[in-house]
């Protein structure tokens, strides 16, 4: 094990998969000479050449469209979107083609494509570069949607995403790129569709979507001081959802708080709340609670941006309310 940056773990996954399988190639904006807006693809052009690290025109729809065609005919493209917001320009290609082609061709063709989608707030990138759109993709049958929160999973999930024959929307929280964590030295894959229990606890379950896991773990630490023993689950996979891990935890703790940075109306947390009350109604001692982003376009102003997304204090407050306590003065 060695400690590595989240961004370095992503790069390692790309590098290893490109070395392992020459059908893997990268396409995106500023990913070659420049090394990517977040330096994830740094040095890969020099290593693999311009046929496998393709700097594309600023045209998301054809970047994704051409990748779908390449995937249908035997390649394994990994697309980098500069931000998840820009992927909206390619939404038609993703929803109408990538997600449906296997079905429309009766299983004779597949689209083994990964789209990497940096997103989330916290960098004063304002209303058109900072959102969390897990739900826009999680909603679509035919797409797998994953979101790592540790360097280990960043690498392991990206490698799994590249190897599956399904199209994968790979959500990356920009705020996690500079975080560190242990990454195994040996070859490994993180399975898609499995949540991870990051902290065991008895009083309530806090389920984090993407970066919210990091906040939830910080909140759980603070909750200890209030004698509240929180379990923290890292969702990791938005589609498919790992109901077993979620429901097992709820059956143990009887309380569930779901945290996402995206807008909660019709959000990932809404889907989870609906599923949990169906599967574990008799175990619940409180309504499933949800914390999400403020339902506004992301503000530019630093204070307002902070106010628009969940904080670990919000999670502490929400958790205490669920167990009948107030924040101590």
């Amino acid at each position: 094990m060695a400690e590595k940056l989240f961004r370095a773990a992503l790069r390692e996954a790309l590098l290893e998969e490109m070395e392992r399988d020459e059908s893997v190639y990268l396409i995106g904006e500023d990913i070659g000479v420049f090394g990517g807006a977040y330096r994830i693809t740094e040095g890969l052009l020099e290593k693999f050449g311009e046929m496998r690290v393709v700097d594309a025109p600023i045209a998301e729809e054809v970047i994704v469209g051409s990748a779908i065609g390449a995937a249908m005919t035997g390649l394994r493209p990994v697309v980098e979107m500069m931000t998840v917001n820009f992927s909206l320009l390619a939404y038609d290609q993703v929803v109408q083609n990538a997600a449906k082609i296997r079905y429309m061709f009766g299983g004779k063709v597949s689209v083994p494509m990964v789209i990497r989608l940096p997103g989330g707030a916290g960098h004063q990138l304002s209303a058109q570069h900072s959102h969390s759109f897990e739900v826009l993709y999680g909603f679509i049958p035919g797409l797998l949607v994953v979101s790592p929160t540790t360097p280990e999973d960043a690498k392991g999930l990206l490698k799994s995403a590249i190897r599956t024959d399904n199209p994968v929307m790979f959500m990356e929280s920009m705020s996690l790129y500079n975080t560190r964590g242990e990454v195994p030295d040996e070859e490994y894959l993180t399975p898609i569709g499995k949540a991870a229990v990051r902290r065991e606890g008895a009083d309530l379950t806090i389920l984090g979507v993407s970066r919210q896991v990091v906040l939830a773990l910080a909140a759980a630490q603070k909750l200890e001081d209030e004698d509240v023993d929180a379990e923290v689950i890292d969702l990791r996979s938005i589609r498919p959802l790992d109901w077993k891990t979620i429901v097992d935890s709820v059956k143990k703790t009887s309380r569930l708080l779901v945290v996402e940075e995206g807008w909660p109306t019709f959000g990932v947390s809404a889907e989870i709340a609906a599923g949990v009350q169906l599967r574990a109604f008799d175990y619940l001692d409180a309504p499933v609670n949800r914390i999400g982003g403020a339902e506004v376009p992301m503000p530019y102003n630093q204070q307002l941006e902070k106010a628009a997304i969940p904080s670990s204090e919000d999670i502490v407050k929400g958790a205490l309310a669920m167990v009948g306590k107030k924040v101590s003065a």
């Binding site: 296997r102 079905y103 061709f105 009766g106 299983g107 597949s110 049958p141 035919g142 797998l144 599956t164 024959d165 399904n166 569709g193 589609r239 498919p240 959802l241 109901w243």
Partner: peptide, 10 residues
């Protein structure tokens, strides 16, 4: 069949 390479639990 053939929405995904494998059937999801849902």
């Amino acid at each position: 069949d053939n929405v995904f390479a494998e059937l999801t639990p849902r």
